[in-house]
Simulated scan of single mutants.
Amino acid sequence: MNLGRGINFGNALDALDGGPRLPLEHRYFDEVAAAGFATVRLPARWSAHAAATPPYTIDPAFFRRVDAGVAAALDHGLRVVLNVHHYDGICAAPDEHRPRFLALWRQIAAHYAGHDNRLCFELLNEPRGELTADRWNAVLAEALAVVREACPERTVIIGSAEMNSPAALPALAVPDDDHLVATVHYYAPFEFTHQNAGWVAGAERWLGRTWGSPADEDAVRADLAKVAAWGRDRRLPIFIGEFGAFSAADMVSRARWTAFVRTEAERLGLSWAYWEFGTDFGAFDPESATWREPLRRALLGV
């Protein structure tokens, strides 16, 4: 499946305590569909809304919140990527949290088994830490098998270890399955895209960095060409599930970088989803209820 042009509704169903929060309002799906996007990625922090002991039951109230987002997207003719986001436990202690992670997916897959195949599952956002490539490959295969019990043909998105780094793709073991898409996240150069980001130690030192030289462009070309080649070798579609530049960067450079990554991805046949709709990387300004035009044009080319 080619997911086309997408955008993340980050900081809505996955919001962290004390962080920015996006209300998941129906009008935002109107905006996304009218702008011309094809896909919405819905990050969801299931681990914060499930029991800590077996059978690790997911709170029905949270399911209802997720259901509303999925339905709103599908009702607008959008594809949906629904993931497990911000599950720090599985990354810090894989052996301990593996049964809970698999139980979450058993419940999620069964709950959405009746939905049409415009709904896709992404097994885990940014595996990292103690969830090394070898460990993640094993857990990934188990989670996919759990999903397939209820959803034998639903598109499932799998990503590399090391926070979905493109550099970690060669270590990703791809299961034998006809309904897979591989994902990477792209934030290079990190010192530009995350300048002054409060959750990154020392990021204030990068404030003022711009982007747009021929060398900058060449670096993006080289990075994405390697990703595309990996996908071609495995006959596997590639989805850049996140890319974006934090709001502290100057808008001219943000728009230039965003447009270049987007056009290069499309030239290589890669689908993508911008991070994100309406908070600290946002292409949309909820206060004025308008798109930030430089970013909208960078993403859609019109």
Rank of each mutant, 00 (worst) to 15 (best):
A197N: 11
E126S: 11
P189I: 03
A229W: 04
A219M: 13
R135K: 13
E142W: 04
D223N: 08
T193M: 01
L236E: 02
G202H: 12
V181L: 09
R148P: 05
R205T: 15
D134H: 13
T193N: 02
L124R: 00
L144Q: 09
P166T: 06
R205L: 08
G129W: 15
I158F: 13
I158L: 07
E191Q: 03
R154L: 01
W136C: 12
G198L: 08
P127V: 06
G198N: 14
F190M: 12
C120D: 02
A201V: 15
D233P: 11
P237I: 03
T210G: 14
V174L: 07
G212I: 09
A197C: 08
S160K: 09
R128Q: 14
A201Q: 15
V174E: 00
H194K: 04
L131H: 04
S213P: 09
C120I: 00
A182R: 04
A141Q: 11
R209V: 14
V139N: 06
S213N: 09
R118H: 08
P175G: 10
V220D: 00
R154K: 10
P189W: 01
A167I: 09
T155Y: 06
N196G: 13
N125A: 00
G202N: 02
E130T: 12
A161I: 00
T155K: 05
D218V: 14
D223F: 07
E162W: 12
S160N: 04
V156F: 03
A167W: 02
R234A: 08
A225P: 11
